[in-house]
Amino acid sequence: MNILLDLLSVLLILAGAFFFIAGTVGLLRLPDLFTRLHALTKADNLGLGLIMLGCVRFAPDGLYIAKMLLLWLLIMASGATASHLIAKRALRGDGEDY
């Protein structure tokens, strides 16, 4: 049973790492700012979620799990908002780089 749980954790963590790598690949390969934002927000949020899910097995107590959950929610909310702000700034062209 323990081995099965360990295996599940490892699979989740590896899947998470895969999405992080996909995010990096997207950031480097995609042609413009907007498409890169897609890669960054979606792949990294999912990657982080999977890694945290994989780490639940090693949590010392319930509060630790709650902290990971809150952290993930914070990252998702701030990631989505950040990508909206960056895209808006680029669309309106009112940032300093124009």
């Binding site: 979606k42 989505a80 909206h84 895209a87």
Partner: peptide, 16 residues
């Protein structure tokens, strides 16, 4: 809704 759009496959809320 705007924040959720960014997590749907293939869409990103860019302005409002």
């Amino acid at each position: 809704f705007l924040d959720s759009i960014s997590l749907l496959p293939g869409t990103l809320s860019a302005d409002y």
